[in-house]
Write a protein that binds this DNA or RNA. Sequence first.
DNA 1: GTCTATATCCGGATAGAC
DNA 2: GTCTATCCGGATATAGAC
Lengths: 213, 213
Amino acid sequence: MAQAAARRNGGKQSRIQTENRALIMQAALDVFSTDGYRGATVDRIAERAGMSKTNLLYYYPSKEEIYRSAIEQTVEDWLDPFAAIDPDGDPIEELRRYITIKLEMSDRYPEASRLFANEIQRGAPLVGEFLQTRLKSLVDEKAAVIRSWIDEGKLAPVDPYHLVFTIWATTQHYADFEVQVQAILGGQAKKPGFNEQVAHAVLSILLNGIRPR
Amino acid sequence: MAQAAARRNGGKQSRIQTENRALIMQAALDVFSTDGYRGATVDRIAERAGMSKTNLLYYYPSKEEIYRSAIEQTVEDWLDPFAAIDPDGDPIEELRRYITIKLEMSDRYPEASRLFANEIQRGAPLVGEFLQTRLKSLVDEKAAVIRSWIDEGKLAPVDPYHLVFTIWATTQHYADFEVQVQAILGGQAKKPGFNEQVAHAVLSILLNGIRPR
DNA sequence: GTCTATATCCGGATAGAC
DNA sequence: GTCTATCCGGATATAGAC
């Protein structure tokens, strides 16, 4: 048993284990993000990961555990840059940095973005509690920061919560609705420099919208 | 055969047929929008529509046809207000009106919004062609209108396409990520006046972002 | 660690009675 | 128009050989 072996040598995994688990996670992101939890099949995930279904189930005990693992990883990655918004930094610069990072994440990990979107649209059966506890308090905290920036006259008076929602919505749109964006923009959405164009446009609209006037 | 009967009396449906079809469509929106196409089951749709699976399959020949019907209806409804943007109107007022209508639609028909989002995230197997043809030319047309507004100095110089994406993203966010919004805002997202609060916040950010300065 | 075979269940769709 | 019964394919998960 690999698990037993791993336990024996202090929780460490063999090289092949680490590799296979990484392969499975990437495949899981791909499949779950397009087909959803219920629509995804272990077979497809295994195929994408380049191994047999039974072999995959040797690494993860069940479909649900694969999903849980993928979504927990995604959630952690999402939180970091938001938590990093600095109350003592320049408001416009802090938000510019956050928006830029989120756009980069949407570009580099669109499957993760879609996986999370799918989980929320399903009614968040797995991350529901997380939303109401950790995420809520973090947003409350950052909303207070934004409010204080507004009170100091450094930002236009906008509702902090809806500002956060607006940032999330716009930045994730380029991952979640990638197909639509490409259908409308055609080839240019593939060209180099497209990401900079997106960043410029989004930043220009949002930052102008909240700059004090 | 009901279809034969309908054909005989000139395409009209009996009262019970019309009712049942409406029940099925609403149930289909509910189930497909949360579980996705693959994850949805005819059984669940039937249960939600208050009839047996076989009875449902009497009205629609297959799961795919139910889905197609639901998504086509949704797409048509989505297009109307966008097409209604008037080149001769006041730019800010036209966009204000469009954003307001889209927010209302997200509030009243969140399942339709999520159904469409899900279809796009799956890679748009059904509406892909629609996106590349009808939607693309409509967006091209409206982008030209926005560009002319900018050239006349009536709007700040923003990329018209990304402005459209930004509007779509923000307005649909309140439907697609409803659970997250509620988790973070708690009870206030249910209170009367919430929609007005959302509209005010979104309009304030977006319109300030594109008002000429 | 990986494979073949299989138990078990569920979902879509049809046949045919009423 | 609606129901019961049923076929069949596909999906999760396990047993056991190598």
